[in-house]
Design a protein around this nucleic acid. Structure first.
Lengths: 156, 156
DNA sequence: TTTGAAAAGAGACAGCG
DNA sequence: CGCTGTCTCTTTTCAAA
């Protein structure tokens, strides 16, 4: 996991359809070497999968909201209950009184209301607090880390 | 944007490396037709880009937190200020008194503290409220919509 | 719009420095 | 660990229905 690996991850995050030849050229490696690096990154689980980024609005999910879910009991094994709702894109256990933070995408505020109702029906849930997003500044992949290392090798 | 398109998006979200032949077979189309569909989905912007899903922990970003940013002035054009911090993965304008919600990934809680400090230095910011994630249940792509339409065509 | 096939390119894998 | 060459498969394009 050196700087080249990080650069490869960054490049693939931007565009995973790039050829290994172009990928290698960008980091100063041959196509074969780049291919080998990426293969190892996949084997190690650094790169989990290759996926496509879809526009939520185009899929009829133009409303984004974050919902704080308060619960009376330990929610440690309620992951499946949240995962059962397709509108929920993320679910995290957060610090606080047994609470969960979920990211919800629906097509309308009415549909959001329906999701909130179904969340409320999950065992142990005592309350929800929704925050509707008015505008998304940006959503981007995880930064692979140190992008500009202090190396003196200019060019090539 | 019919059910086949939605199915194609779902399949590509799961694994964008699949061949068009396999893709077409999964939805009952030929490779060429599947290719045409996907090409149009890209042209229409439904599919924005092909990317890789990297493991944040493997990239040295094992700490996840959501930060509520309160501001005294209109934050509508402060996107660049947030984007300048690589640890910030998402930034949304939310309802409330000119507030922004950001998703932050750092390698340590100390680094999180540093990010909070830099957020605080953004013009107009009057306060931050961080919520640290203890465990992530799941993070998944946007649901492409109606997965089980009421069609009578069983199988194939 | 889909199908089928043909050509152009990329990816996988070997052996070697 | 990286480079080069070879082979296979996919993507891409095209004509036709």
């Amino acid at each position: 996991m050196d700087d080249i690996d990080r650069a490869l991850v960054a490049l693939l995050q931007q565009d995973a359809t790039r050829a290994y030849a172009a990928l290698g050229q960008a980091v100063g490696l041959s196509a074969g070497a780049a291919h080998d690096r990426v293969r190892k990154l996949r084997e190690r689980g650094v790169i989990r999968r290759t996926t496509v980024d879809a526009d939520p609005a185009a899929l009829g999910r133009g409303v984004l909201a974050y919902v704080m879910v308060e619960a009376s009991s330990w929610m440690g094994d309620s992951a499946a209950a949240f995962a059962a709702l397709p509108e929920i894109q993320e679910a995290h256990v957060i610090a606080g009184s047994a609470s969960v933070l979920v990211k919800v995408r629906t097509g309308s505020t009415e549909a959001l209301q329906g999701v909130l109702r179904r969340i409320y029906e999950i065992d142990g849930v005592t309350g929800t607090s929704a925050t509707v997003v008015l505008e998304t500044f940006f959503e981007r992949p995880v930064d692979p880390g140190a992008p500009s290392p202090p190396d003196g090798t200019s060019g090539v």
